[in-house]
Design a protein around this nucleic acid. Structure first.
Length: 202
DNA sequence: TCCCGATGCTGGAGGGGCTA
DNA sequence: TAGCCCCTCCAGCATCGGGA
C-alpha cells in the first residue's frame, strides 16, 4: 500500500508533476509487474528495464508528462517523458527521464543529458512478506534535476579485441547526492550491506 | 539483406575507504 | 580488525539506422 506519509513534501518536483500522480504510478508498477516476476528470475537486467518502462508508462497515464508518440524515438532518445505542450525538443526543465534500479544509489546512462530524473528503486520480495500479492515493491523514489557536470564518463575497453558493452556515464557520488533527498521512502525497508531488504525480514 | 555501431535498459564483482 | 558502504569496471540483451 502506497502511503502519503512515506512522501517527503519538501522535495522539489518537475513542473506540473504531483505526488498523487507518482502515488498512482507506484501502484500501477507494483500491480503491473506482479505477473512478470518470472522475467526477473530469468534475466534481472531485463526486468529492471521493464520497471523503468512501466514507470514512464504510468506517468504518461497519470501526469502532465507524456511519452514521445514516435515509438522509435520513445525507445531510444532522451527524454522518456516531456511536459505536455513543451514541443518536440523540450528544455531540460521540461524533460523527465524514468529509470529503475535494484541498487541503493547507483545511476548509470549512456548519456550525460541535463534534465529531471525519476529513479524507481525496487526490490523483489518473492515471499511477499511486505505486502500480500506484491512480489515487486517500490521502496524508494529519487527525483532530482541533474546537470551535465553531475555525470562522469565511464569508459569501456570494448573493441575488436573483445570486451563487453559500450561506454556509459555514471552519476558522480550518487550516495552523497541522493541521501536524504528521496521523494518517497518506505519505512519498512532497510538498507543492509548496501542492499534493500524488508525490515520485518530479520 | 546483412553487419556493425550507437543507443536504450540494467546487474554483479571486487577493491578501497571509513567506522565501530 | 571486521563489517559495511560506495565507486569503478566489466557483464548482458534489445532495437534501430546507416553503410557495404
Amino acid at each position: 500500500m502506497v502511503r502519503k506519509a512515506d512522501f517527503n513534501p519538501d522535495i522539489p518536483l518537475p513542473p506540473g508533476l504531483t505526488v498523487t500522480a507518482i502515488q498512482k504510478a507506484i501502484d500501477y508498477i507494483e500491480k503491473g509487474l506482479t505477473d512478470l516476476i518470472e522475467i526477473y528470475l530469468e534475466q534481472a537486467n531485463v526486468f529492471s528495464a521493464l520497471v523503468g518502462i512501466y514507470g514512464a508508462k504510468a506517468l504518461d497515464a497519470t501526469s502532465v508528462y507524456e511519452k514521445n508518440r514516435h515509438l522509435d524515438l520513445a525507445q531510444q532518445r532522451f527524454p522518456d517523458l516531456r511536459k505536455k505542450g513543451s514541443g518536440p525538443n523540450p528544455s531540460p526543465l521540461m524533460s523527465l527521464e524514468s529509470k529503475a534500479s535494484k541498487r541503493a544509489w547507483a545511476l548509470q546512462s549512456h548519456f550525460d543529458h541535463s534534465g529531471w530524473y525519476i529513479v524507481w528503486r525496487y526490490l523483489v520480495d518473492p515471499t511477499m512478506s511486505l505486502e500480500e500479492g506484491k512480489p515487486v515493491i517500490i521502496w524508494r523514489i529519487d527525483v532530482i534535476f541533474l546537470r551535465k557536470e553531475d555525470w562522469k564518463y565511464e569508459g569501456s575497453n570494448a573493441g575488436s579485441a573483445g570486451g563487453g558493452r559500450t561506454h556509459t556515464f555514471g552519476l558522480k557520488n550518487p550516495a552523497q547526492k541522493l541521501k536524504g533527498r528521496a521523494l518517497y521512502q518506505r519505512k519498512d525497508v532497510r538498507l543492509i550491506g548496501g542492499k534493500a531488504v524488508p525490515a520485518n525480514g530479520d
